[in-house]
């Protein structure tokens, strides 16, 4: 591993018509870390992910992954570099089957051309088999929940928790180095959420992914994150371990301030 961090972000700035969604944000992720990004609603967390994955163009700042700039790359090129993500409001390919969902996300790792498919070349057949097996393998990570008869069900019939799992599986299938999870346990019950927390740990320990996750559920954040970064109004107001951050008066104020705003 090189001495430079895996993901290096400096002075990142995003503006939506006068609204500073992200404001001079510095952020680094080392390989093999689990970093949690927390902050009140509207703090800019999802926007932060959108910028990394190339879906939103930043107005300023630099963004480098493994030492190479990501600025100006299309989202699919960024995925090809090794960054995959999930979405806060689950966005599966609903009319495609569970297996197809994880097959299509291997697009940037496969090479077959149209003529291979038309002529059914050996390259086509071996690659299809590989893609299929890899898809099944990834789905198997979640036990039997997404396997068996589920392979051929459309994603739309899955339960909510299973959809969230499939989103993670779909991200895994892109064969990434860094996975961005946007509120992975949102809407799950405590049992499911504890189980998924464990799985996220396994994603790093067994699969070797580096993980950045956004989460509102503090028990999840406490249990798995090595580091926590707190965003408020697009700025990082605190960093450190969970214990450090949760004792930080600014953080408490940000959360409390928001609570009083709401009431």
């Amino acid at each position: 591993m090189s001495a430079r961090p895996m993901l290096e972000i400096a002075g990142l700035h995003v503006e939506f018509g006068g609204l500073h969604a992200l404001n001079k944000l510095d952020f680094t992720v080392e390989e093999g870390e689990i970093v949690a990004v927390i902050g009140p609603n509207g703090a800019g967390k999802t926007t932060f992910f959108n910028v990394i994955s190339g879906m939103v163009e930043p107005t300023g700042g630099t963004l480098a992954f493994e030492g190479q700039s990501l600025l100006g790359l299309d989202p699919n090129k960024i995925t090809a570099r090794g960054i995959a993500r999930t979405f806060q409001n689950v966005r599966l390919f609903n009319n495609m089957t569970v297996l197809e969902n994880v097959m299509v996300s291997q697009h940037c790792r496969t090479r077959q051309r149209v003529f291979d498919a038309l002529l059914q070349t050996r390259r086509f057949r071996t690659e299809e088999a590989l893609v299929r097996d890899r898809g099944k393998e990834v789905l198997g990570f979640f036990g039997t929940r997404l396997t068996g008869y589920r392979f051929d069900q459309p994603a739309s019939v899955l339960s909510y928790a299973n959809r969230r799992r499939l989103e993670i599986a779909r991200a895994m299938a892109t064969d990434p180095k860094l996975i961005l999870l946007d509120e992975p346990v949102a809407g799950m019950n405590p049992v499911e959420s504890a189980e998924l927390t464990q799985l996220i740990g396994k994603l790093r320990d067994e699969m070797g992914y580096t993980i950045v996750l956004i989460e509102h559920d503090m028990s999840v954040v406490r249990n798995i994150s090595d580091r926590v970064v707190v965003l408020d109004h697009g700025e990082a107001i605190a960093r450190g371990t969970y214990a450090e951050v949760s004792a930080n008066p600014q953080v408490i104020e940000a959360y409390l301030g928001q609570t009083t705003d709401r009431n």
Binding site: F87, M96, H107
Partner: peptide, 23 residues
């Protein structure tokens, strides 16, 4: 095939397809 799945993904949700590595 690969291209057919990419088409379907584009049909379902273009920006997600792109974020999942589909050109």
């Amino acid at each position: 095939s690969r291209i057919g799945r990419a088409w379907m993904a584009v049909r379902e949700d273009e920006s997600v397809a792109e974020a999942m590595g589909v050109d």
